[in-house]
Design a protein around this nucleic acid. Structure first.
Lengths: 336, 336
DNA sequence: TCGGGGGGTGTAAGCCCTTACATTGGGTGA
DNA sequence: TCACCCAATGTAAGGGCTTACACCCCCCGA
């Protein structure tokens, strides 16, 4: 008479010779159940290999918020910290965190839309899905917070102040006497990158210099920076400072310079962005911009829960800090 | 007459003057509903600001598996790839992925146990929670797969072949003529680390050398490697090769050597572990061991779903590859 | 001996959807 | 004009659990 279906409370109750309420009580632990009864129920559970259905459970307990955070690629060290901050905040509220790395999957748009159906709200990072997908999310009325990307509709955005820091960093290079700056990275591939590029342009313009050149990379990893910069050096382009879109690309750039016989920072200044842990341990230690990653994550979670609660939330821009080490020329020349 | 509670299908149906079935049909999109009716329902949804309850929905559709993967700390580049592989596989099955970074939280044990209640299965990585917690999970009968950690009870484990690769790497250093090797890292803090250390010991023993020393680090980041090695150098300990627990620590070690006036690899060989993207771009490029991270993630997901389906799964050890670059002495001396 | 008080359990009402099946009514062909 | 068909919609049965409340029975005190 064992039914072929998955067991449920009823099956277990029947087998133990009790009611479903008693089974539930045994499960919840705290309730008072006669020792003998408890035994029988536990035996039945064991015999049937039963695990309570988490969905039914959560439904009955009317609880269990779930939120998601969407990234392009988890492999940037950058993201890890953001997720950490996000999780910290979320766990305190006993909500579950789903993490989706779209990672250049071609169906990322569908994945995100799909994900949106399974959670109570989500944070979407810049560069993960096309604007049209964000608009679709917005239209589906799922509570939404945008990270490192301009606001859309009523969805608030949280960002680091890329523009201002880029201006500051570029100005710092100029103060070291550098005059021919290039941007290493692809400004078009993410809102963050675009803003850094714009900041660089702005600083050069303010100094009366011509518009800097862009050396496009195929991605954000060290190898991409290495390959692109080496090609540019071999092409004979002249420049004395490389403003990289992030630290990883910068590490590739430093090595490219080295293998081309250039010494950093004497012959070529190199800067990064993000201040990943290894940045301080590159040779030379990398000048970069530190973003408040943890806070970005934590605050985005905070904003999201506000949205879920139905409240309006203003967009937010967090300050960043210029971290000068040696790759820009500090501690070598006395410029600045 | 608007009820103060959250709206649900009934509220919406009532307001639109239709039955709940019709509301559901409008929601699912595909069903045929008269245009006029659809309009009214959509208006009602809009007016009430209704979003269907995902739990009820998933329950009724009897779908929506969810699985989790538990890490210590997401900030190792190592983990990102594993998660990627895991996610890839999981998404194909339309299951949701929860990611938990215990990150040294003191209540990690509670968090994991808690998490286990909300998912259909989980992968737990070595070093995240104490053995006793793993045993508790095992006892709670949640489908479980262990990653980079020895099997427990009926829970299968998936690992990279640390021991063998460590022997190989150590032998490689010995072949370069190095004789005084030290281990930089804390063998006790993770099963992976312990196995690497044991492999090193084994290789030295096989070569008739004394047991190598351990230089303990406080963590796995560059700064930890830097600090620990610098202290050791200043203490006057002598050695000609540093076998690091991972690439990040190795990057700190390289810089420590540099700031102590030692040239790598001439005066001191340094090796890492993991082959993170930046490893090839350190100066000198780092000799390390590549683990099949993506595969580790993908296979663990596969194993997990087998377990969820109630099938037994054997443990698995995947091979690793020694990546020789220059930090070990290759391309400099001709030893080996 | 009888009323009261609990401890231990059962009953049934949710929680909020989806969906198989039943029902209605207007249009069509004979 | 009437049977029939099908599109549009409603009814109700789950899906698997929690929990307020009712109930029973045994023991104790008066």
């Amino acid at each position: 008479m064992t039914s072929p279906r998955r067991p449920n409370v009823y099956t277990v109750a029947e087998r133990a010779g009790v009611s479903i309420a008693t089974v539930s009580r045994v499960l919840s632990g705290g309730e008072r159940v006669a020792p003998d009864t408890r035994r029988r129920v536990l035996d039945a559970i064991e015999a049937l290999q039963w695990r309570p259905n988490r969905l039914a459970r959560a439904l009955a307990q009317r609880g269990g918020e779930a939120v998601a955070i969407v990234f392009t690629d988890l492999s940037g060290l950058y993201y890890a910290q953001v997720i950490n901050g996000f999780e910290q905040h979320t766990i305190e509220r006993r909500a579950a965190v789903l993490v989706l790395g779209t990672h250049g999957r071609d169906d990322s748009e569908r994945l995100v839309l799909d994900l949106a159906e399974r959670v109570d709200g989500l944070v979407v990072m810049g560069g993960t899905v096309p604007d049209v997908a964000v608009a679709a999310l917005e239209a589906s009325r799922v509570p939404l917070v945008l990270l490192a990307r301009p606001p859309v509709g009523s969805a608030p955005a949280i960002r680091a102040d890329n523009r201002r820091s880029a201006v500051e960093l570029a100005a710092h290079l100029l103060a070291h006497g550098r005059r021919r700056l290039v941007f290493l990275g692809d400004p078009g591939s993410s809102p963050d990158g675009a803003e850094r590029w714009e900041g660089l342009v702005e600083a050069c313009a303010a100094a009366g210099l011509p518009r800097p050149a862009t050396v496009a990379t195929d991605g954000f990893e060290p190898e991409h920076g290495h390959k692109a910069l080496l090609r540019e050096l071999e092409a004979g382009t002249e420049f004395d400072a490389v403003f990289c879109v992030n630290d990883q690309v910068a590490s590739g750039a430093i090595r490219a310079a080295g293998s081309f016989g250039l010494e950093v920072p004497r012959d070529l200044a190199v800067t990064g962005w993000d201040d990943i842990p290894i940045a301080a341990h590159l040779v030379p230690p990398l000048t970069t911009v530190r973003q408040p990653m943890r806070e970005l994550g934590a605050r985005s979670a905070e904003m999201l829960f506000e949205r879920i609660a139905g409240r309006a939330v203003p967009s937010l821009t967090l300050p960043t800090a210029l971290i000068t080490r040696q790759s820009c020329g500090c501690g070598v020349d006395q410029g600045g």
